[in-house]
Design a protein around this nucleic acid. Structure first.
Lengths: 339, 339
DNA sequence: GGGCGTTTTTACAACGTTATACAGCCCGAC
DNA sequence: GTCGGGCTGTATAACGTTGTAAAAACGCCC
């Protein structure tokens, strides 16, 4: 059986609280007593029961991070950043994945999946603003990714519209005139809509048409989705000279199809992705990508969820993490205008 | 403040235990009473406190999964399999990453990172057998990946030696005579050593020399490690006609370097990876890879850790998950012998 | 050596839940 | 009618920890 404070106390011939004091480095313990108790602790191999401690203290030391997919390296890298940031505050992270499905996201936000947590960081895909309106759960929630409307929760995000515009501007600067967007999620995902909006705005600013036939829906955001969408565009007889993809996986899937059909990247079609995952740096054609500051996102998310632990209901805040465009072979310019 | 059983009991005018009975579907509760209590529960928005429940029951409903790196999609896919398998048993998964560093792995195995768990699934890289000998922690431990020596813990693994031999056999069947191995970890990783052994054995069986100059060490197992190792081999003046990499990421990194130097895959150099990650199916040259049954590994791991919860110390067991060789463009044969 | 302030240790009550044991109750059987 | 036994509901005691408050020990001064 597991050793408890009581066992140690009996063994050392002191009260339970004294042992607790030693364990918690309470200052008013004589060196002699401390050593005597410590010896019993070591001898019996005592280890505090965190469940009991947390019941008493009202905190569990665990925050949950709910992501759409672990398989996407962007989220994996983000998870690593969150885990590290949490560890710096002596917090442990419980990871969950929602598949980006709305019902799962609602379930998670209501705390039905993991109910032993002090706080929750959620990266929603299909979740609607209204889904959070009647949230009753009292653990602090922080949202990753931009939301259009106001909700009483902190947001951590990069400026998706600006980032998308920068990507499209870069393509236009290369002289491209027909820029496709791959990865809209049938209008059901807020982040996708923001990137589409950036794409549309930048094309408009350059006086280029934002043709709906150049926006390709996908079901998900994996390699296969990008490949299928690219194939559909080509089979519809379109031949864009540039592609801006919702993320790197979609971009890489699209590039595979271009390669199969003998279209060269970037000569025939330039490609820009989003997320700057490692994978994009090691293909036969390395991928230009919008690079969000993942480490900052993870750190800000942890800090803001922990800041809300006290339960003081201050104003919701919106954190903007940085992003930059990492230029690589997939948009290597033939005399690129400075973008 | 959070609503507790006591609040509900007061509101409904019954005892705390009766409310508990309703919550836990205890059979001997009249329908009338059940409904009355349920109404109070709904009205007050009661939600059970899992910390307290678990303190009482001695179980937390959480198992930890400690992986070397989340960034490697293989582990991400594996994590998804474990999370799903655990969910089927009403268990939640707490994810941790060790970076594959020995001290971290020891720490995790001793339970220093996450101490609120019922069981632990650990995928060690550098951990030595002896590190587990004096493990005092009493939560059940299951190891992922093969271990050579006997330890009182269950193992879930594929047959690494056999899988490596199959990969090398396939290359030899293509007519390749100089097969390099990329991704030994300076002898510090047991799984790597097993794959090197398979490589060595199969070469020996074919009467080919297993030249030490063809084994490339790496620090880690990411794209960059594979690229650096491949470059080192070429710069040493070697020109193997095939490469077997420790995993897909290493293989893809190596292929990038081959591409940069104008060497064609598979014409000049055939490449085989390990893990069968999605990424390998969408490069300009798709990657042949050893494909372990991740879903089975995840399921077996969860089942065996849960089976040990009772604490009955039965014999440690060794589970073998299946693997197969997924053949793709990187080993497309010019008249391949049947392999 | 008694009084007083400071330091050290202790007893006890919580945190929210469930297991145990028991007290009523109702019903049918003797 | 009294007894036994199956249903319901309740009081109480845990689970292992820490906060509070009070008791004990100590040191110092007069």
């Amino acid at each position: 059986m597991r050793v408890s404070l009581k066992d140690v106390a009996a063994h050392a011939g002191v009260s339970v609280k004294t042992v607790s004091n030693v364990v918690n480095d309470y200052p008013y313990v004589t060196a002699a007593m401390r050593e005597r108790v410590q010896r019993s602790i070591d001898e019996l191999g005592y280890r505090p029961n965190l469940t009991a401690r947390h019941l008493r203290k009202g905190r569990t030391g665990i925050i949950a991070l709910a992501l759409p997919e672990l398989g996407n390296p962007y989220f994996a890298e983000l998870a690593a950043a969150v885990i590290d940031a949490a560890a710096a505050h002596d917090y442990t992270v419980l990871l969950d994945h929602t598949g980006g499905r709305r019902e799962q996201e609602i379930l998670v936000s209501q705390g039905f999946r993991a109910r032993v947590i002090d706080g929750l960081i959620l990266s929603p895909i299909e979740l609607e603003t209204e889904d959070l309106r009647d949230r009753t759960e009292d653990v602090p929630l922080v949202l990753l990714g931009e939301r259009d409307y106001d909700l009483p929760y902190d947001h951590i995000a990069i400026d998706n519209v600006a980032a998308a515009r920068a990507a499209v501007r870069h393509l236009i600067g290369l002289g491209r005139r027909e820029v496709a967007f791959i990865g809209d999620r049938r209008g059901r995902s807020e982040p996708a809509q923001l990137r589409v909006r950036g794409w549309r705005e930048e094309l408009a600013a350059a006086g280029l048409p934002a043709d709906d036939g150049l926006v390709a829906d996908t079901d998900g955001w994996g390699h296969a989705d990008g490949a299928a969408a690219m194939a559909r565009i080509l089979e519809a007889g379109r031949r864009p000279d540039a592609v801006f993809a919702y993320n790197d996986l979609v971009a890489i899937g699209a590039m595979r199809v271009l390669h199969e059909r003998g279209l060269r990247v970037p000569e025939d079609i330039a490609v820009v992705g989003f997320d700057d995952v490692v994978e994009g740096r090691f293909g036969a054609v390395t991928l230009t990508s919008v690079s969000p500051d993942k480490e900052a996102i993870g750190r800000l998310a942890v800090e803001s969820v922990l800041a809300r632990l006290g339960g003081k209901p201050s104003e919701p805040r919106r954190f903007r993490a940085d992003h930059r465009l990492a230029e690589r072979e997939s948009t290597l310019g033939r005399g690129a205008a400075n973008a």
